[in-house]
């Protein structure tokens, strides 16, 4: 029979494979298919890059720096002093930065959920190994799992 399991990209995949091998599943009975993320930008856009996934903090950090600096400077002559005005500036800058990015990103459907099946594992094994294999894969955080039997008995 053949067992099909999906995993998130994590060390658990390697742990699962090595545990299977310890259980007697040979290397040629295991086939791993890492899936390519569709959201990844594989091209050189001009010379500027907005690499997906982290750019939403760019603006927050930049505005945070600027407004914190201005807050500290003008806070120096204001009643509340440079500390409080610096913090107000930082929070305001970071907040505005994140909100702006969120507002821009909301329009594009580019962002996908980060968690999901990254790796498909196919395991060739005997029928009587199935319960042990299933238990092992589940205990190693397989996202989804199915066994396909070669031929239905008595048919």
């Amino acid at each position: 029979m053949i067992v099909i399991a999906t995993f998130e990209s994590h060390l658990f995949v390697e742990l699962a494979i090595s545990a299977l091998q310890e259980k007697g599943i040979a290397e040629h009975q295991i086939f791993a298919v890492p899936l390519n993320r569709s959201a990844e930008p594989p091209r050189l856009l001009d010379t500027l890059h907005h690499a997906n996934g982290f750019s939403f903090l760019d603006l927050a950090a930049i505005l945070g720096t600027c407004l914190m600096l201005l807050g500290a400077i003008y806070g120096y002559v204001l009643a509340w002093g440079p500390i409080i005005w610096g913090i107000i500036g930082a929070v305001l800058g970071i907040g505005i930065g994140i909100l702006l990015k969120w507002w821009v990103n909301r329009k594009s459907t580019h962002r996908q959920s980060r968690t999901g099946a990254d790796i498909v594992l196919l395991i060739r094994c005997d029928e009587q190994q199935w319960p042990a294999v299933e238990q092992l894969l589940r205990s190693h955080h397989a996202l989804g799992l199915a066994g396909v039997h070669d031929k239905q008995p008595n048919r």
Partner: peptide, 20 residues
């Protein structure tokens, strides 16, 4: 993720794998 995918592709895609 890239390292893991690379390793799995190189190590666990045997030609002898018995496809159904």
């Amino acid at each position: 993720e890239k390292e893991l995918a690379h390793y799995l592709r190189r190590r666990f895609q045997p030609k002898r794998f018995a496809w159904p």
